[in-house]
């Protein structure tokens, strides 16, 4: 029997802070005259350990936000169970709310209000005395590079600053577990990279557990220890980004040859690297997925040179999370997100 200990200062790695089994949610909807149900989330099982940054990756409409809203007590599950920070979301919603931070996609502050006052009021709604909420808010403003913004109205802030203000709102009561819904949507690349470093800092500096949703592959890749891939309401894969990419059989090797006569010897040489597979030919381009392509490349180039094949270019591409998504679902996440 494993005994789980939970400390407010240092989350011990290994203890489970989010535990869901068969979590599902349907919404009633009308199709013409018939009332039907749409299964937004169709039975999700997940476990998140203390101190992890876990990314919930999937296209828009896959059920990410619905799952997040169930875990944060904003939506009642139709079926299934979930324990968050040790409390049951259905029977102990108040205790769950006290234990977690939540940063929604749509923001959290009134555009005309003052940033600092919003943060202090929010802290007080968590039962924190005003002085303590003020001190904590100012500390968060300093950490999140919002110095001098205390009296600024959110509407006068940049998109990146507003997102960081939302994060300060979600952290004012010092939760050990924080949920971020699409934290960098709508931000420019610089602001996104900046926010990523702040999110990493939450875990590295404060030992927090971060659960975030995203439909950006690079975000999941750069930020998350573990990625849960969700598609059409179910989790289709869950692992570290590297392990997920290893599931895709190898790196993509792409050779471009000078003329069509050289396509056949090039394809033969490339196919020889992977027993049982044959290279894909498109015009003068020959390609194949080769596990551990790096170690074969030098030999391949030498062999082709000896055979008199003149290479125009050689390209090796590591699998991306998009390749993972494509392999798992048969669809590209990029097309979906566009």
């Amino acid at each position: 029997m494993v005994k789980f200990e939970y400390s407010s200062l240092t989350n011990e790695r290994g203890s489970i802070v989010i535990h869901a089994r068969g979590l599902a949610r349907s919404f009633p909807t009308r199709a013409g005259r018939d009332k039907t149900e749409v299964r937004a989330v169709a039975g999700v099982d997940l476990d998140v350990e203390a101190g992890e940054i876990v990314g919930f990756l999937g296209p828009n409409g896959a059920g990410k936000t619905t799952t997040l809203r169930m875990l944060t007590t904003l939506l009642t599950p139709t079926s299934g169970t979930a324990t968050v920070a040790g409390y049951d979301v259905a029977s102990q919603p108040g205790l769950v709310r006290q234990s977690i931070g939540y940063v929604s996609q749509s923001g959290s502050t009134q555009p005309e209000a003052r940033a600092g006052e919003e943060v202090v009021d929010h802290g007080q709604l968590y039962g924190i005395p005003k002085a303590q909420a003020t001190a904590r808010g100012q500390e968060l403003f300093a950490q999140l590079e919002l110095d001098g913004m205390w009296k600024r109205a959110p509407k006068a802030m940049s998109g990146g600053q507003r997102r960081r203000l939302d994060i300060a709102m979600g952290l004012v009561h010092d939760p050990q577990l924080v949920f971020l819904d699409e934290p960098t949507t709508g931000l420019d690349p610089q602001a996104r990279a900046n926010l990523w470093s702040h999110i990493s800092q939450l875990r590295n500096g404060r030992g927090m557990t971060v659960f975030l949703t995203t439909h950006y592959l690079d975000e999941a890749d750069a930020l998350c220890d573990r990625v849960l891939v969700i598609d059409r309401g179910t989790i289709v894969a869950a692992d570290t980004p590297d392990a997920l990419k290893r599931q895709v059989a190898g790196d993509l090797v792409e050779l471009v040859v000078g003329d069509r006569a050289q396509v056949v010897p090039a394809a033969t040489a490339l196919s020889a690297l992977v027993p049982g597979e044959s290279a894909h030919v498109d015009g003068t381009t020959v390609s194949l997925r080769v596990p551990g392509a790096g170690s074969h490349l030098a030999g391949l180039v030498r062999e082709l040179d000896d055979a008199g094949v003149a290479l125009v270019s050689v390209d090796v591409r590591r699998p991306t999370l998009d390749d993972v998504f494509l392999t798992l679902t048969g669809r590209s996440l990029r097309e979906d997100a566009a």
Binding site: K3, I16, H19
Partner: peptide
């Protein structure tokens, strides 16, 4: 998925800040 035993964790031992009373919360919102 994690390799840890998939059992529901026990309630934390941490003392949480107590939620504001109804009147207090009404006052903050007001």
């Amino acid at each position: 998925m994690t390799t840890t035993a998939p059992t529901a964790p026990a309630a934390p031992a941490t003392v949480l800040p107590s939620a504001p009373s109804f009147l207090r919360a009404t006052g903050i919102v007001f």
